[in-house]
Amino acid sequence: MSARKINLTVNGEAVEAEVEARLNLADFLRQAIGLTGTHVGCEHGVCGACTVIVDGRPARACLMLAVQADGAKVETVESLGTPESLSELQQAFRDRHALQCGFCTPGMLMTIEALLRVEGSPTREEIRDVLSGNLCRCTGYQAIVDAALDAAEARRGTR
């Protein structure tokens, strides 16, 4: 297999790695650099569990090759808060019970994080529309929408 050297930024840290051309970004993040917060749910770009932020925009890490991330700035769920200090969005998810099994959650968080950076006051409908690319079998989505609205409000209050 042909290996290629890539240089990228992951959660603010420079990463240099030699990767096979066919390795996708999700497997790279999970296996090569141990960031297992990014989950793989369908491997065909529908469920959104693997969503990360690449150069400021949400992207399916299962549909992107690691070599395509050469030179990119990648953010994963690990870049948000910590268990001791959750981000506003993570805290809103907890307060609203917007996660159950937690498997789709990293993708949900990164999709909404990307939304809130560009749209500070989304409506319920806009949030539901943006979440149409993220599947959740546990929550029925309502609590996730509530959490996104809460987080938007919290962010507005602190800015």
């Binding site: 960031l35 297992t36 917060g37 990014t38 994963t76 769920v77 690990e78 948000l80 808060g81 910590t82 268990p83 001791e84 959750l86 993570q90 998810f93 907890r94 996660l99 937690g102 959650t105 990293p106 968080l109």
Partner: peptide, 8 residues
């Protein structure tokens, strides 16, 4: 939740 929300 704190664990699951932070990719842990």
């Amino acid at each position: 939740d704190p664990r699951l929300l932070t990719g842990r």
